[in-house]
Simulated assay, not measured.
Amino acid sequence: MATAERLFYEEGVRAVGVERILREAGVGRASLYRHFPGKDDLLVAVLTERDRNWRAWLAARVGASDLEPAELPLALFDGLHERFAAMGFRGCAFINTMVEEADPDSPAHGVAADHKERVITYLDGLLRDCGYRSHEVLSRQLALLADGAIVTALREGTPDAALRARGIAAALLGAADREETRQEREEDAPARM
């Protein structure tokens, strides 16, 4: 799976055949087909695992952030900036898959689209927990900014798109209606006494 993930990401799903995966992974055809009936099944498994890892990375990135609660959703863009600057950045594996597997009924397209919805769901929960009243709308706006930043970073070959998207996201959050979180109320309580 690791070899398939690397090759699919570096070269594209359609450009990489089963023979190439077998050769580079050093496994036999029977071994591959014992676990995956075909290339499409391998791709779905790769994307499913990548989705799990990507969302765990995002949650860890947000959890490790020292941003104030109102700014915590901006950790997404800080993390994207780091990813865009990494060697070998080739865009979003899920966007790339949806482009190559354009049929929405394709299992791989479905896994990629589900990933995007899971990210939106995560952002929605984060925004809700941060006290944003319009969290449903904001989560989709931030996801749109993130996807746009990914494509722009790939096109421009620079991580700066994440910073520009972060600025727009900060403006959206700054204009949004928000209530104080319990943590903020507890932190402010001694100052009120």
Results as ranks from 00 to 15, higher is better:
161 A>K: 02
30 A>W: 03
95 I>S: 07
87 M>D: 11
120 I>F: 01
127 L>V: 09
127 L>C: 08
111 V>F: 05
131 G>Q: 01
51 D>K: 14
92 C>Q: 01
104 P>W: 04
68 E>M: 06
130 C>Q: 11
54 W>F: 12
23 R>E: 15
9 Y>V: 04
178 R>Q: 08
161 A>T: 04
3 T>A: 12
18 V>L: 15
61 R>Y: 01
163 L>G: 11
110 G>H: 11
170 A>N: 05
93 A>S: 13
109 H>F: 14
9 Y>E: 07
153 A>M: 06
147 D>T: 05
108 A>E: 04
20 R>A: 12
131 G>E: 01
7 L>M: 08
193 M>Y: 07
94 F>G: 00
179 E>N: 11
78 D>E: 15
85 A>W: 08
143 A>L: 12
155 R>V: 11
11 E>N: 10
117 E>H: 13
68 E>P: 11
123 L>R: 00
1 M>V: 14
136 E>Q: 11
109 H>S: 13
122 Y>I: 07
82 E>D: 15
60 A>Q: 14
41 D>I: 02
134 S>K: 07
54 W>H: 13
89 F>L: 06
68 E>L: 15
121 T>M: 03
133 R>D: 04
179 E>D: 13
56 A>N: 12
180 E>T: 04
90 R>S: 11
70 A>Y: 03
18 V>K: 10
22 L>F: 04
15 A>H: 10
58 L>Y: 00
15 A>D: 10
35 H>W: 11
171 A>F: 09
61 R>N: 06
102 A>C: 01
76 L>C: 06
